[in-house]
Design a protein around this nucleic acid. Sequence first.
DNA 1: CAAAATTAATCAATCGATTGAATAGTTGTG
DNA 2: CACAACTATTCAATCGATTGATTAATTTTG
Lengths: 208, 208
Amino acid sequence: MEKADKKASILDAAERLFTELGYEGTSTRQIAKDSGANMSMINYYFGSKEGVFMEIMSKRIFGFNEQLLSISQDKLSHMEKLLKVIENYANRILCNPGLHKMMHRELTLSQRPEMFLKVKNSMANNLVVIEQIIDDGITEGSFRSVDVRMLIATVMGTISNVAISPAKITYGTTLDINNEDDKAVITDRLIAHLKDLLTVYLTPNNDK
Amino acid sequence: MEKADKKASILDAAERLFTELGYEGTSTRQIAKDSGANMSMINYYFGSKEGVFMEIMSKRIFGFNEQLLSISQDKLSHMEKLLKVIENYANRILCNPGLHKMMHRELTLSQRPEMFLKVKNSMANNLVVIEQIIDDGITEGSFRSVDVRMLIATVMGTISNVAISPAKITYGTTLDINNEDDKAVITDRLIAHLKDLLTVYLTPNNDK
DNA sequence: CAAAATTAATCAATCGATTGAATAGTTGTG
DNA sequence: CACAACTATTCAATCGATTGATTAATTTTG
């Protein structure tokens, strides 16, 4: 309370509004109003509305890749690595589904190429880490030979789908991802499902 | 050429612009300009900008569910039904990825509740059809007992991920979903992957 | 005091929507 | 058939509101 820190409060308000209303749907006036700051403070600190957006993205994306990289270098079996990466990835996305929605939206728009590249590169980085692990597992013989790119689309798509779809569509009838308790349940269920799926699918066939 | 049919040309231009720039990012002036119609024609025919959007959605969503329902009533095994539904679903979405992106965007925004409900209900309808097929397969014993909702998230998420992700991220390095020839290749690859995945995952374990 | 932070007021541009009038096509009437 | 009445379509012009951004003045801070 002491230190106003308008800069942070602007970012907070902006992130919430962007998440809820989209980039175009959010006005700088509303950001100012919600954060208790004057309109000019937005341009004073971030240069422009787009500057605010970029700052939010940068802050959130940072550290995402490092985490995955560190796991991929752990002393684990390929399957253990893969499952750990997925668990990490799912937790990261589901702990803030709104942000993930926002990133997804920007990724499907041809506007704002700078944001597009940022999000795209971040995703691409995550992708190569996972791809490498699966590739290693296949060449080692501990994984079946599968379409790696498509399998990654399955993993990321599943997580994304759970994070994005409106509550009652994806999960049972009562669970709501906006409820904190339910969110933990959903996350666990998602991770358990992916572990089961990948274990069954990637484990080499015994017979034949 | 004879008949101008401004109404259709407005819808065409609007769909292209909405897909590319998003709903908020598209102005009625640009729709008018691109379609060669006067601005007021938009309100004359559709009442409002949102009316244009709703018309596009309605047109596209219509028939989606009937198709799936008819398949689910075919005389096929549960696995055959499931695979056929998925093949249909994938083809439908990948033949017009832009539209799917647009639907997805609207689904992640709290604005425009009418659109939201339309898209959501459409998806929910598709979901129950698939869910019923898998449920039947499980009770019959031809499928393993799995987390049905999560598996559906996997199927839909995979298709969605392939349709939405920028070309070079999801598929190999050369394939581009915006190229018509490549699109066919990607679609086939996606369907083959899902068939393989579901067959392996749902087939009951022989040993143990 | 000087620099940084904050404010109210205002900018030009653009937004979605509406207006009233003009044109074209159809229908009704004798 | 002829002419009036009516409906549907199209248009330029403009509406008030809102957009992101900027200005210049003021306050706070070190």
